[in-house]
């Protein structure tokens, strides 16, 4: 906004008046009153013991839960990303059996709630008490007790990872399809096979396009891990719930857990911002144009 005075007809500088944004002041006042009232109700609530919140915020079990949550998020996201790329490539294959399998996978894992999947993996021993890996018609092989393999941690990682893969496959597919068709033609014209074209030319570009959305998937995963408490995965939510089941301080421990989830999300958001700055301009350039790009790159476009 201009602050330098403007000369009037006779050449005398006249100051510029300030614009008053009445709408902003009004909105701010309403927000302050409503939010302040709600905060007041919670903060001064005699049934809420803030001392307990402070006490449990750095409790050893809570901190170890935070660490497990990060571990599960990272591992499940990694599994989901790798598997998602594989499923996406299969989905786009000319081989109808491969693309059919990929379509089935996506349909199945998106069609069942992740909560059901978690409980399923955790209870796999009901169906298969032993996991056996051996060469057919011989006695050579390995055998595990299902209940020892499918701990809360592994079933959480498997359930969340396989589920993410189904969603992420669609993102990757959009990314692959957003790569200019001319890149494929040029790769073929150089004498590349379809597989080489995918690996050397298309995927490196598609991955640059989908890196920003992967940040989103990770942030969402941080909080989806809270479902793991149903299979006792010893994550943040599991440990918080075990504490409040013992001492009945439900609200206090929910606040403690929320604070940690928000801290983790804030850190992940910061990292995602850096990822986007690093790859965002690449992504926009590689896609050129709207359509698919608009769906894959909701953040970058802004």
């Amino acid at each position: 906004m201009r602050t330098e005075p403007i000369a009037d007809g006779s050449g005398t500088p006249v100051p510029v008046a300030r614009t008053w944004h009445w709408g902003r002041w009004l909105a701010a006042a309403v927000a302050l009153v409503v939010a302040g009232w709600l905060a007041y109700l919670v903060v001064v609530n005699p049934r809420l013991d803030w001392g307990k919140v402070a006490e449990y915020l750095f409790n050893e079990r809570i901190l170890s839960g935070v660490w497990v949550t990060i571990e599960i998020s990272v591992l499940a996201t990694a599994l989901g990303l790798v598997l998602g790329v594989l499923v996406a490539v299969m989905r786009l294959a000319h081989n109808p059996v491969l693309s059919g399998l990929a379509t089935f996978y996506i349909w199945f894992f998106r069609g069942t709630p992740v909560l059901v999947q978690l409980i399923f993996w955790y209870n796999l021993a009901f169906l298969f008490p032993e996991l056996v890996l051996k060469i057919p018609f011989t006695m050579i092989g390995l055998k595990w007790d299902t209940n020892q393999v499918m701990t809360g941690f592994t079933s959480a990682m498997l359930g969340l990872g396989l589920n993410l893969a189904a969603y992420f496959a669609e993102t990757v597919r959009a990314g692959i399809q957003a790569v200019d068709r001319g890149q494929t033609e040029a790769a073929y014209a150089l004498g590349m096979t379809p597989a080489k074209r995918m690996r050397v030319i298309v995927l490196p570009q598609a991955l640059r396009i989908i890196i920003p959305p992967t940040g989103n998937e990770f942030i969402s995963m941080l909080k989806t891990t809270s479902l793991v408490y149903v299979v006792a995965g010893h994550d943040l939510m599991t440990n918080a719930s075990q504490i409040y089941k013992a001492n009945n301080r439900i609200m206090e421990l929910l606040i403690v857990a929320s604070v940690w989830y928000m801290v983790m999300t804030a850190v992940a958001t910061f990292l995602q911002g850096r990822l986007e700055r690093r790859f965002g301009s690449d992504a926009v350039r590689l896609v050129r144009g709207g359509g698919v790009a608009a769906r894959v790159l909701p953040k970058v476009a802004a």
Binding site: G182, Q183, A186, R208, L286
Partner: peptide, 9 residues
């Protein structure tokens, strides 16, 4: 090609 189609990455 008409549109060059250089590998963008």
């Amino acid at each position: 090609f008409q549109r060059f189609n250089l590998f963008a990455h």
